[in-house]
């Protein structure tokens, strides 16, 4: 950006600051509100910075309501979803990127798999409920994770195919000639090189499962996940705003930590795959 004037730089940063403010304000507000007691919560006009911070709301959701249990449910579900979706999806993406099927079947498969995401989830809910009841997966975290994986596999395939296409064919062929098997090549060459993509898709699936509401509500009512528990703060008789905000913060933090831990992969992954995908 050499040659850019000082005013230009200033304007650019002002613009960035404005966008950030708009995006981050609700997050700030949620954190702000989560530390207020009922009196301050209902004050008009609202206090921009909490005056008498209290852990009351957090104590309520964690100790009285047992949010740690919901977080555990969410974690198991999201891990199941991410592991299954990334494994299945990237195997499929690898196959589609490396083997040419006759009659343009690669394209048809790639398109067909998108249809999973085309119809509204609520349509599949009742049949799924029935099937899950029959096979005993109803009200299990594993079962819910599988459903989340099923919904996300198309995303994984479409993202990973770009990453696998980016890996030079020569490199894999060299490994085949060097004496390795196809699976060996996948494990030792393709997977390490596609790691940014795998990390990025893993996190996307994890977040989407972590946030998912509808399937979690219907198929797993006994092992509630966080979104259901958060929504539970809105009852027939009252809306517990303080708890709602604290629950929101509590549900956001783990994903934030995960994103920070894998930030390097995430940004690289999201850009690299996009170029040729």
């Amino acid at each position: 950006m050499a040659g850019e004037s000082r005013i230009g730089t200033l304007l650019r940063y002002a613009g960035i600051a404005l966008v950030l403010a708009i995006v981050l304000f609700p997050v700030y507000w949620m954190i702000n509100m989560s530390f207020k007691d009922t009196a301050e919560f209902t004050a008009r006009p609202p206090t921009m910075i909490v005056k008498r911070p209290t852990w009351e709301n957090y104590r309520d959701i964690l100790i009285s309501q047992g949010f740690d249990r919901y977080a555990w449910n969410s974690l198991l579900t999201a891990l199941t979803a991410a592991v299954v979706a990334v494994t299945v999806g990237s195997l499929m993406a690898y196959a589609l990127s490396r083997f040419r099927l006759p009659k343009n079947f690669n394209y048809h498969l790639l398109f067909t798999i998108l249809t999973v995401r085309m119809f509204p989830p609520i349509l599949s809910l009742i049949p799924l409920y029935y099937i899950y009841k029959q096979i005993g997966l109803l009200d299990t975290r594993f079962g819910l994770g599988l459903i989340h994986a099923w919904v996300e596999v198309p995303l994984v395939v479409w993202m990973m195919i770009g990453f696998f296409r980016d890996i030079p064919r020569d490199m894999e062929e060299a490994a085949l000639v060097d004496g390795d098997t196809r699976l060996g090549v996948l494990r030792k060459i393709a997977v390490p090189l596609a790691r940014p993509g795998l990390a990025a898709t893993f996190i996307l699936v994890f977040i989407s499962s972590w946030n998912e509401f509808l399937f979690a509500l219907i198929l797993n009512s006994r092992n509630q996940t966080l979104p259901i528990a958060v929504a539970g703060q809105i009852t027939q008789f009252e809306i517990r705003y303080g708890n709602l905000m604290a629950a929101g913060v509590f549900a956001t933090v783990p994903v934030l930590i995960l994103a920070f831990l894998t930030q390097r992969h995430l940004t690289r992954g999201l850009t690299v795959g996009g170029v040729t995908g």
Partner: peptide, 28 residues
Amino acid sequence: PPRSRNIAMVFQSYALYSHLTVFENLAY
């Protein structure tokens, strides 16, 4: 399959394993 033909190939692009060291490339 290629692995059973006991051949070695040098590619135009060299096709070195970019995530492995020179030692591991040779050892592969």
